[in-house]
Design a protein around this nucleic acid. Structure first.
Ligand code: MN
Ligand code: MN
Ligand code: ZN
Ligand code: ZN
Lengths: 132, 132
DNA sequence: TTTTTACTTTAAAATCGTTCTAAACTACTT
DNA sequence: AAGTAGTTTAGAACGATTTTAAAGTAAAAA
C-alpha cells in the first residue's frame, strides 16, 4: 500500500504537505523524533512547511494510529514511527531512546486493572546511564 | 528524622520556603502533583510562595532524590512523593495516575542493557481507559 | 558577635513548545 | 464548473518553565 492509500485509509486527505511528511515517516524505518527534527528533515528534502502544519499533521497522524507519541518528561514532544507495542531504554542524561521489541520483555505477573477500566497497553521503560 | 534533618542530609539549606514544602510533601503519603497543585496547597496552608521558588525547590528536591518526576507526555510536569521503585496505571483521557507497588509486577525476562550502560531503574506503565 | 560569603527568594521579563486565529488555498463532491 | 468542507499559513497568543537581577537570609569566618 502506498502512502496516498495509507492516508485515505486513515480518513485523511492526501494533501501535498501530508504526503511530504508521510514520505519521510512511513518508510518502515523505526525512529523517534520531535516536530523540530521533522521540520529539519522537510527542509533538507528541499521542501518547507509551517510549524503549525507540522503539529497539525503529527496530531492527525497520531490520532489515526499512523505514529505514536512517547511518554516522556522532556518538555518537547517525542513521536515514534514504531506503532507496534514495544518498550524503550531511556538515557535520562541525553534523552536518547532505544527500542526494545515486545518479545524481549516478559511480564510474568501484572496487577489487576482497576474496576471499570480496560487495559489499553503496557509499556516498559528501562532507564539507563552511561558507565563511568 | 525530621524535615530539617532530611534537608540537611540532602545537602539543602533548610530555608523557610523549603521547610513549608517539605512539611507538605514529606509526610509519608504518596501523591502525584504539579507545581500548581503544590502552590494551591501552600496557599491553603496560609503561606504563599513565588512560582519560581516552587520550581526551584521541586528541581532541587528531585535532584536530591527527595521526590521523583513521572515520565509523562502531558505538557505539565508531574511529581511523585513515592520515591520507591514502582509502577503506574495511566488513564490517558484524564491524566490520572495510580501507583502499582513494585511487588505487584514481575518482569520475567529483560533485554540486555546496551554496552557501556547501567540499568538505572525499570518502570512499567499500564495505560487504561474507562469501560464504555 | 560582627562581618563576610555564598546561597536563596522574588517579581517580572523572557523563553520555548505548542495551539489558536482568520484569511487564503485546495481537495473532493455535486 | 461551482460549491463546500477541510487544510495550510504567518503571526499572534498561550501556558509552563526558566532567567534576570536585586533584595534577603543562612552558614562560615573572623
Ligand atoms: Mn512531558
Ligand atoms: Mn511546554
Ligand atoms: Zn520506540
Ligand atoms: Zn507514583
Amino acid at each position: 500500500m502506498n502512502n496516498k492509500e495509507k492516508l485515505r485509509k486513515a480518513g485523511l486527505r492526501p494533501t501535498k504537505q501530508r504526503m511530504i511528511i508521510a514520505d519521510i515517516l512511513l518508510d518502515g524505518i523505526d525512529r523517534h523524533f520531535t516536530a523540530e527534527n521533522l521540520q529539519n528533515e522537510i527542509n533538507s528534502s528541499g521542501n518547507s512547511m509551517s510549524i503549525a502544519t507540522i503539529y497539525n499533521c503529527l496530531k492527525k497522524f497520531r490520532n489515526c494510529g499512523l505514529i505514536k507519541q512517547v511518554e516522556s518528561s522532556k518538555d518537547t514532544a517525542i513521536f515514534d514511527t514504531n506503532i507496534n507495542q514495544h518498550h524503550h531504554f531511556l538515557d535520562e542524561e541525553t534523552g536518547e531512546l532505544i527500542d526494545i521489541e515486545n518479545d524481549e520483555v516478559n511480564l510474568h505477573k501484572l496487577p489487576k486493572i482497576p474496576q471499570g477500566y480496560l487495559n489499553n497497553g503496557v509499556e516498559v521503560l528501562i532507564k539507563i546511564k552511561k558507565q563511568i
